[in-house]
């Protein structure tokens, strides 16, 4: 091995990177910005109370009272139906039924926050009885539709629509720009609207089979229930795919290098991965973070999918998230129409 060759290759590789401002920004600048933003977001603060529910029943009130004394728990009293739904949708980590033999704690232990909820409830009950420790009985939530996997599968479909929609168009469009194909198309009588609409149509169709595959896998392999309307679910997938593809086109409307589009799409996707409600229910979030979560298209895709899968939802039940998504898609398309550069 000749050191001078290694040296020259290293020098070239380094300079090639260093002289590309977009690459430098997305490699150094962007993570630094993220560190600052996340640092502010996760300032040391008292831990958030864990949401749990007590099911309405004779004698439940006493348990409810004793749990309310714990500052670490956010307790609410719910009817059996609403409590089940809240558990299924991840809004609460655990539910407590009270019968003649005392409280029964019900949760899916695969849920990230279930274990903590267990400990906090035990401690609260023990403190309330001042030493007289009544070990509550424990039930594992394993009914299809209420498990964590049932919550997760719709979230994964949402994430997949996001990823496939955005990555599928972003790189491809920038590639077309880099290799002068967009300039070539620009000098024909093709209109920008025709190009963008056709491109969006062709690419957004591609995300549908993958989403359907995950859905079938979840239903057949894990017994995830499908209680609502198939039509409505398809519509969520189609409109969701269209919206995310639209965001991808918008991101790629001006990017001139692969580094830029990669960084830009990561920047757009990261908040959705964290706050979009795929892995945990973002309805439990508070303040500005909740507000941000409500603005993310992924939140609405996930919500609509869970409405039609875990509950007997129909089109009428999901028109709100669907119109939000459709509006988002139209907005992205309109913005891309204005911003799009052929060269």
């Amino acid at each position: 091995m000749r050191w001078r060759v290694v040296q020259m290759v290293a020098r070239t590789a380094f300079l090639e990177f260093w002289r590309s401002p977009a690459a430098v920004f997305w490699t150094y600048g962007f993570p630094l910005m993220m560190a600052v933003v996340l640092g502010f977001a996760f300032q040391p603060s008292p831990p958030k109370p864990v949401p749990i529910a007590v099911v309405e029943a004779p004698g439940a009130n006493a348990v409810f009272q004793s749990l309310q004394s714990s500052k670490r728990l956010a307790v609410e009293m719910l009817s059996p139906e609403l409590a089940d739904e809240a558990l299924a949708r991840g809004r609460i980590a655990l539910l407590i039924k009270v019968d003649v033999d005392g409280p029964v704690l019900r949760s899916d232990p695969t849920r990230p926050e279930a274990e903590l909820a267990h400990l906090l409830v035990h401690r609260a009950l023990r403190d309330a009885r001042q030493g007289e420790v009544a070990m509550a009985r424990i039930e594992v939530e394993d009914r299809p539709g209420s498990r964590y996997i049932d919550f997760l599968i719709p979230g994964l479909i949402g994430l997949n629509l996001l990823g496939a929609g955005m990555w599928g168009v972003g790189f491809n469009l920038v590639q077309m720009r880099v290799q002068n194909l967009l300039r070539r198309i620009f000098v024909t009588p093709m209109r920008r609207s025709e190009f963008l609409a056709g491109y969006l149509l062709g690419r957004s169709v591609l995300v549908i089979p993958e989403a359907v595959a995950i859905l079938l896998f979840g239903v057949l392999m894990w017994g995830v229930p499908f209680r609502g309307s198939y039509m409505a679910a398809m519509l969520v997938i189609v409109i969701g795919g269209w919206t995310f593809t639209g965001i991808g086109v918008l991101c790629a409307s001006r990017a001139r290098t692969i580094e830029t589009i990669g960084g830009l799409m990561n920047a757009v996707q990261l908040p959705m991965w964290i706050l979009g409600g795929s892995f945990f229910a973002n309805e439990a979030l508070e303040g500005p973070v909740r507000w941000v979560a409500e603005c993310l298209p992924l939140t609405h895709v996930n919500r609509a999918l869970r409405d039609v899968m875990l509950e007997p939802g129909t089109l009428a039940d999901i028109w709100m998230p669907l119109s939000f998504l459709a509006a988002g898609g139209v907005l992205c398309f309109a913005a891309a129409m204005r911003l799009f550069r052929w060269q």
Binding site: R183, R184, T188
Partner: peptide, 18 residues
Amino acid sequence: DHAIRARIGVCLQETKFH
């Protein structure tokens, strides 16, 4: 612009098609 583009043919210095 549209009317001009309909009447001209362009071969750029280098274009890679799909």
